[in-house]
Design a protein around this nucleic acid. Structure first.
Ligand code: MN
Ligand code: MN
Ligand code: MN
Ligand code: MN
Lengths: 229, 229
DNA sequence: TATTTTTGTTAGTCTAATCTAACTTAATAT
DNA sequence: ATATTAAGTTAGATTAGACTAACAAAAATA
């Protein structure tokens, strides 16, 4: 009688499971809680499916699940989610810095490559990039232990007329928004001076580079993170 | 009454389907035929599963299927298979040439990346590599239409004492074999002179580079493809 | 507080992709 | 030619991951 023994202790998660973990991580509020409904909307997956996946992830010790209570990632779940985000952001950085893609082109590709199982591949990207701390959209890249250091930026929309700030990150990373920023020559690292703020609709008139008077809607200013200089 | 219409005509194949297509392509003989049994062994998937997948691929017009007859890819199936192989080999080339991996490290990674859906990614690899015709193991990279040009190499084992040949490709691309070649400083493009062939076991004594007398087993010589010079 | 709306769960269905057991057809050996 | 073995198929089970319909709990509103 031969008994087959599974020697692969570190069973990896499926693509679907990884996408749930990542979505939970990024939707978590300060309490680390997520609602079934929010997850359902984010993933475009119906609520009953989310519930059943949460039960599965709970048996894998990745999620704390109790009926009708908000969902929480366990420490293990948080770490695994952060490591997927690490792969996502390293990939985006690699695509931009080493392959010449625009920052508006890389998210969709990274959404797939983040699921590749190859520590060597991502270690090599990291090395070739010189161990970057931020991705092309200014978001922090978690380290190998899944630790993510958040820098406390301000929204441009919360700054006042007369302030001079440095563009440091974007909140929305949709291709449309990034293409809009490209069209205005707005990129990370840029110094921007706020000339005036329209009190009625919070539209801002700003100057930067060769552009001495550009008007940015509140919607845009809310999605730009800056540092005071 | 609103009717939902599927506008995505070019439904992509699943990862499983792609792996079957690729395996069929590479197992096909000169007649373009494969047996269920061979496919089953190659993919490490039981025969009934293979049969049912063949029926699915037949409904998708990728495979000609008739009970108890050998399997054949349709022209469409051949093209799709070749385009996956194109992605695989472009990836291997990129990993070796642009990221500094060894030729023995890249197959496993390419096995995953070949399934990424992003024409832009592979077009960029192709461009950065200067539109290569061969992968790091000397195998031809199919073009964008799925056309693959085979060069007729000889096996080193079929050459005679006194011949001088150029190492052009490897048949076996297992990491073990490639590491063995590394250990003997054998790489593609190398000029090798055959000093003698042992009649008993077909072992060859060869010289190349700074190595004036290396002994290669028949097993090794059978897996090395060469051009006469 | 009572009603309505929103959120979440349960139960049951479906497809993809795998398996085993049993059977059939084809190939090989005696 | 017959018996045996190998190859291939059918039938039925299983799991992951999705869905809808119906119901239950919680939150919001009147
Ligand atoms: Mn992204
Ligand atoms: Mn993803
Ligand atoms: Mn390969
Ligand atoms: Mn593959």
């Amino acid at each position: 009688m031969i008994t087959k023994i599974n020697v692969y202790f570190c069973r990896v998660n499926s693509l679907a499971e990884e996408n749930y973990l990542k979505a939970m991580f990024s939707l978590s509020n300060d309490k680390g809680e997520v609602n079934v409904n929010d997850l359902s909307k984010r993933l475009e997956i119906k609520m009953p499916t989310v519930t059943s996946m949460m039960k599965r992830l709970a048996t894998k010790k990745l999620v704390h699940y109790e009926s009708y209570k908000p969902l929480k990632l366990t420490d293990k779940g948080k770490k695994e989610a952060a490591l997927i985000i690490r792969k996502h952001r390293l990939t985006e950085m690699f695509l931009v810095e080493k392959m010449g893609f625009g920052w508006e082109q890389v998210h969709e590709i990274a959404e797939q490559i983040e699921h590749i199982q190859s520590p060597e591949l991502f270690a090599k990207m990291d090395e070739l990039l010189g161990f970057p701390k931020l991705d092309p959209h200014g978001s922090p890249i978690p380290d190998k232990n899944g630790t993510m250091v958040w820098v406390a930026y301000n929204k441009l929309s919360e700054c006042k007329a007369g302030d001079t700030v440095k563009l440091s990150a974007v909140i929305n990373t949709s291709a449309e928004f990034l293409k809009f920023l490209n069209s205005r020559e707005l990129s990370l690292g840029l110094k921007v001076k706020i000339k005036s703020v329209e009190p009625f609709d919070n539209t801002m008139v700003v100057s930067y580079g060769k552009r001495l008077s550009e008007t940015l809607s509140h919607t845009v200013c809310e999605r730009l993170l800056v540092e005071k200089v």
